[in-house]
Write a protein that binds this DNA or RNA. Structure first.
Lengths: 357, 357
DNA sequence: GTGAGGCTTCGAAGCGCTTCGATAGCGATT
DNA sequence: AATCGCTATCGAAGCGCTTCGAAGCCTCAC
């Protein structure tokens, strides 16, 4: 089916209007009256081309609506201009946040003229190896990294650079980006402490998330507990399942065991609304009797009743940063091993000083 | 940087163990003692190769861990083995459902040996044109299609086949897949009617979704209203915003205006839990006093209290189907214009006969 | 015994692009 | 006037793969 002998260019007019369907760099070169290599250099900037020529070439490109053939480019240059986004879909992850990462990655990648290939993790190691060997992608971004992630040793074998969103237990030698969840846990406690609370609890992600060693969940809890201890507060922390009934039970238990509890930190998007409902059901008003701080996207915190004081997950920034780092690596530039984004707490209507006893 | 004169193969041993890093079809050919074209045919099956030779070739491929260079393949064969998934991210869409589509598309695509390129819609028409011209992808799957989608005319200009998830107003000449939402609306009403309900209401998607003419929202409403009319039921239908307060208000209004209301259909994932909460707040028990049918993912319906009778959105099937259709089109086989998947209603604990007056 | 016809396999061309070395032009320098 | 050193451009090779035509080798029938 390949046009082995494509219709030769019309030697009379010097060009063929819509040749055979595909406009090649040769068409552009002819149209602009230069050599193909000149077009290439005008486009890539890897050699200097006079302003006049460049302009002429670009004009021809526009008139002909030329787009370089991705495969040919990849073959000749050893660069596919595509990056892989590896997205494991595990239980308990808040999908909208993952999607925010993904969108941010795609958008930023486009700014670097890269496209994004979506991989789910079920292909596993073979998938990664295939990406590597087939030269389909230049680099990888892995999301939702676990503390002891099975993909990591493999990643090191590959020739392609990669960036992780999330932190494994041993981040040495890897490039990782994420919100500083440890600090986020601390910040929430600090905020409550500053308001005068002394008895606080963390309502965490579903148990499965901790069990499989997801870094962000554990780190938040550690930050929470460490800061509470440092400030000599009474603190409880534990996972919480997603369904409203479980949330209700957890609240029951918490209030029963800690009668003096006045501050709550929630790190579980799916549980935010049910939690507020459960507090109402127990007759605890927010923030008059219980203060609530959430770690969740702004939209959720904003929409809740009352609007929640929260630390947001800077999904957009994380995605952008991941792509930037990957591009630097691809360019052979040095990058920091880890980029922990500082948490920012926004005060809204769900936190206040604890009630006077 | 290209190895213009790669180290020549060792003429003594006849091969070079890990040549320069990349294993090519030539390495495989040498290892198996055949011509490169034979390897190619053994792999593609486009010409018959004797079983013995094929086995030898496949063995060499495995030992050398050979993966064809995607770019080279695309260049030579005019097929990239990549499909684009175009994902607009509009307000009011339920992200988890979109993600289910996406995952299903990726998984199914892999079964056809295709990879998936993720595009967001903000690139718009230029993005589509670029995909087309650069030959980066062989075909497109567009999600979340509007009734009067701006991308459609453009799509027709492209050389690449495409499949839509969702139905535009004029699906003629296009290949579309979706749940039959019109029928879904009908089925919900039928179920309520069969239980004896005569006064029902639909709680729909956020207003923005209707305003921009999203097919599935409107079709559900039409099916709902048409069937209710056919069965001579009293019916109300309207959009509903996402925040709990708006949901409460909507319930207030509905109950005030329709005192005899006993059946509710919800077609808005984000609103399911708040709606149930609002009904509880109004002292209406489900299903004793009000029956509720949801159109939403099974997980959500299942987790709710009480578990909701629901029509699920067969995201996985839709994604799979979309890929299958696209592959058929790529293979030049005929495909049906539209594939409407029939809704299936699962009865759970949220519907019962209406209370006796 | 020899030509026809089937299977297999080989060799070479070409896909569209990038890149390297070479060349042409031209003012500045000896 | 011949040379140097630029800069701007050209030409050709080659990236790894697919595909087409051709060739080798059998078997079988006449």
């Amino acid at each position: 089916m390949t046009a082995h002998h494509a219709t030769p260019p019309d030697r009379v007019t010097g060009r063929r209007p819509p040749p055979n369907g595909v406009i090649t760099i040769l068409d552009v070169a002819r149209h602009a009256g230069v050599a193909p290599s000149t077009v290439s250099y005008a486009l890539s900037g890897k050699r200097t081309i006079s302003a006049a020529t460049r302009a002429r070439v670009l004009a021809s490109i526009r008139t002909l609506n030329y787009h370089p053939h991705a495969g040919a480019r990849a073959l000749a240059s050893n660069r596919a201009n595509v990056i892989a986004l590896v997205l494991p879909l595990r239980a308990g992850m808040h999908v909208p946040v993952l999607m925010q990462f993904a969108v941010s990655v795609v958008t930023t990648a486009r700014e670097f003229d890269q496209d994004v290939l979506l991989m789910t993790a079920d292909e596993g190691a073979d998938g990664l190896r295939r990406m590597d060997a087939s030269a389909l992608v230049d680099g990888l971004i892995l999301m939702d990294v676990e503390l002891d992630d099975a993909r990591i040793p493999l990643l090191c074998e590959l020739d392609r650079p990669s960036v992780l969103i999330g932190f494994p237990a041993q981040p040495a030698g890897l490039t990782c980006v994420d919100l500083d969840f440890y600090r986020a846990g601390q910040v929430c406690v600090e905020h409550l402490a500053r308001l005068g609370h002394t008895d606080v609890a963390l309502i965490g992600a579903p148990g499965a998330v901790y069990d499989r060693g997801t870094g962000f969940a554990r780190r938040t809890m550690a930050g929470f507990l460490d800061m509470a201890a440092a400030l000599r507060m009474s603190a409880a922390a534990g996972p919480c399942e997603q369904d409203p009934v479980a949330v209700g039970a957890r609240v029951d238990e918490l209030l029963a065991r800690h009668p003096a509890l006045t501050g709550l930190v929630v790190h579980n998007e799916a549980v935010v609304d049910p939690l507020l409902a459960a507090l109402v059901a127990h007759g605890r008003r927010v923030p008059e009797q219980v203060s609530v701080v959430a770690i969740c996207p702004d939209g959720l915190a904003h929409r809740a009743t009352p609007a929640l004081t929260s630390v947001l997950i800077p999904a957009e920034e994380v995605g952008t940063q991941a792509v930037r780092l990957l591009m630097r690596k691809l360019g052979g530039q040095p990058v920091p091993d880890s980029s922990l984004l500082p948490p920012r707490l926004t005060v809204r209507d769900s936190t206040a000083p604890p009630p006077r006893v």
